Simulated scan of single mutants.
Amino acid sequence: MTDQDDLVIEVAGATKTFVQRRRGERRLRRERVDVHAVRDVSFTVRAGEIIGYLGPNGAGKSTTIKMLIGVLTPSAGRLRVAGLDPARQRIALARRIGVVFGQRSTLWWDLPLRDSFELVRHLYRVPSGQFRA
């Protein structure tokens, strides 16, 4: 096994730029403004590693995760997850990984994550066998 074989996540120069239209000074035309949500992010995660991805609001954390799962396509750079290109192989990737975006309304701060999921399972009447699968 080479060093590359145990890479689970590879991010090289990932960038995501959104285009916004804003009113110009004369308000006759809208100006095009590029908003850089993520700019030149690079990192790797190897099998068995546990990482945290931290930053203030607006730092691009959710945008990066959305690129990693194929919900957003990067404007530049290269991303691979489990050997797949998320933007091109989103369905195959979705069969191999799961992502949860927690909101205050869906996860409880005073409960372990597993218990929060179990509670939601009961709310939606998901059979335990299906839930475990």
Rank of each mutant, 00 (worst) to 15 (best):
T15F: 03
K16L: 10
T17A: 14
T17H: 13
F18Q: 08
E25V: 10
L28D: 11
L28Y: 07
R29D: 02
R30N: 09
V33F: 02
V35P: 03
A37G: 10
V38R: 01
R39A: 10
V41G: 06
V41Q: 05
V41S: 05
F43D: 03
T44D: 14
T44F: 07
R46W: 06
I51M: 11
Y53N: 02
Y53H: 06
L54C: 07
G55E: 13
N57P: 01
G58I: 03
G58T: 03
G60H: 10
K61P: 01
K61C: 08
S62Q: 02
S62E: 04
T63K: 00
T63E: 14
I65E: 12
I69A: 03
I69M: 14
I69Y: 15
G70E: 10
L72E: 12
T73V: 10
P74L: 09
P74I: 02
S75T: 15
S75R: 00
G77R: 01
G77M: 01
R78L: 13
L79W: 01
R80F: 01
V81C: 06
V81H: 07
L84K: 04
D85P: 00
A87Q: 08
A87T: 13
R88N: 12
Q89N: 09
R90Q: 15
I91C: 06
A94D: 05
R96L: 13
R96V: 06
R96Y: 07
I97Y: 07
V99T: 11
V100F: 11
G102M: 14
G102E: 15
T106A: 13
T106F: 02
L111V: 03
P112L: 03
P112Q: 03
P112W: 01
D115N: 05
D115H: 09
S116M: 02
S116Y: 00
L119K: 10
V120W: 05
V120Y: 04
L123V: 13
